[in-house]
Design a protein around this nucleic acid. Sequence first.
DNA 1: CTTATTAATCGTAATATTGCAATATTAAGT
DNA 2: ACTTAATATTGCAATATTACGATTAATAAG
Lengths: 109, 109
Amino acid sequence: MGLTKTEIFTEEQNRLAVMLKAIAHPARIAILQHIISANACICGDLVDELGLAQPTISQHLKELKNAGLIQGTIEGVSICYCIEPKAWTLLQDQLNNFFNLYKVPTSCC
Amino acid sequence: MGLTKTEIFTEEQNRLAVMLKAIAHPARIAILQHIISANACICGDLVDELGLAQPTISQHLKELKNAGLIQGTIEGVSICYCIEPKAWTLLQDQLNNFFNLYKVPTSCC
DNA sequence: CTTATTAATCGTAATATTGCAATATTAAGT
DNA sequence: ACTTAATATTGCAATATTACGATTAATAAG
């Protein structure tokens, strides 16, 4: 079906899944790393940096923006993207909560 | 195309993306949470707990196993699944590295 | 050996994702 | 207004994902 049964899961599980899906692609990981390392923001340098066509990059940026992880502000002709600090921290916290559930058990299967 | 251009990215970016993709689904998040909270491992309880059909759960478990995040050992008729500690820690570390790249900048766009 | 029980696999339908060419939009500069 | 640039949007082909019914494989119990 290709259609996730979201109504079965909690709001939190769905939110975390959406955010994770946004970064679960090498191109989007690369884009985020580049945005971060350029500290000051960037735009279509990404097209040169990564070997992907402009529409493809644009689409990945859109998905990251939809997930709330980045924000873009118009700067003349080009658009300046940067990390959305609140969402970034939120995701980090949610992930920590998730991972810290697990304590290595004394015995297992 | 639906086909990721993995050859463009680094080995690390691809590995992280694969692991993230494995947990970027509410059902698989729920499965992991349940496996963790049951500490001692479980099997087809998941079918009762989540509202998904047995083949669907089995498929999700397979993906988690393929990503190396869980392991299953035969226990009589049923199969006991639990977290794979090494992969779990590795993913946690890789994610921390990724998130800690970002320091809130003084100015941005 | 037969029968439950449990879980994997196969096959399939519906939908989502990835990537790009072509085109549209937007904002500056002339 | 016209041109140039930087991005976004549209449309499409190829492939991947999600979910499940039907079936199969494997083990345990009688």
